[in-house]
Simulated assay, not measured.
Amino acid sequence: MITVDFTLFPVGPGNRVLDLGCGGGRHAFEAYRRGADVVAFDQNENDLASVSAMFAAMRAEGEAPASATAETVRGDALAMPFEDGSFDRVIAAEIMEHIPHDTAAMAELHRVLTPGGIAVVTVPSWLPERVCWALSEEYHTNEGGHIRIYTRAELEAKLKATGFRIGPHHHAHALHSPYWWLKCAVGTDNDTHPLVRAYHNLLVWDMMKAPRVTRLAERALNPLIGKSVVVYLRKPRRGGDTG
């Protein structure tokens, strides 16, 4: 499930891309398919092992250009083991809401991005997330869970204060919001509840088949209940210069 719109975040051969907090690697895989040199970065050793195995499988099947590279690196988002300006592109998808010192993580993101480079940050949208918090305390108090709810204005203000120039934004995954509301209502670990299972099957069908009716419905609903808000950024080359 890709959250980033790669028409707004162009990636290809010659780009060095960092997927910060890569998790299962969905965006790292897409960047690799597009021919970029990818570093998937996370604290979770198990996630990184799975991502590394998928990179190897993609190489073996020829799913990425032979010139592209892909690797995993384990570390802390607040102290990344990379030189200043190491990456042309940085993706930070659904990670800032987990980090107590989010502004420090944003400063690290800014540091490792080359001047003139672009970044994209995604977080849960305010309204769908607020409903989840209201329905379930477990949703946001479990270890590693979400510790804050961003408004887009707050997220953009923090990123701007870090030094980024703010670009376009959009919302994504509206059809996933009701799924999480159901999960929060019946118990976040209750994957066997009939309503949860039925809606999960609907989402899988939608992802596999991408029928026109659900794609149009999600596009219409995204501005209202999109599960994620996506903000595109640029690091100025000099001071306030955006060139």
Rank of each mutant, 00 (worst) to 15 (best):
R238M: 12
M1L: 05
E94L: 04
H193S: 05
V231S: 08
I118A: 03
L224S: 03
H101I: 04
L8F: 00
E71K: 13
C22S: 13
D206W: 11
A49S: 13
G145A: 08
T192F: 01
N222L: 08
M54T: 14
G12H: 04
D241N: 12
N44K: 07
R16N: 05
W205N: 09
A68H: 09
H176K: 09
H176S: 03
E143I: 05
L155I: 00
G145D: 05
A161Q: 15
D102I: 14
G35V: 00
G145Q: 04
K227L: 06
N190W: 07
D84I: 03
E61N: 10
D206V: 10
L224N: 05
A92C: 11
H140V: 10
E94K: 08
P124Y: 04
H170S: 07
V230R: 03
R219V: 01
H146N: 02
G145F: 10
D37S: 09
G12W: 02
V213Y: 08
P10L: 14
V38G: 08
A36Y: 00
F41Y: 09
M96I: 12
A92R: 06
V230L: 04
L155S: 01
N190D: 13
V196P: 10
V120H: 10
T162A: 12
S50E: 10
G85C: 06
V90T: 07
D241Y: 07
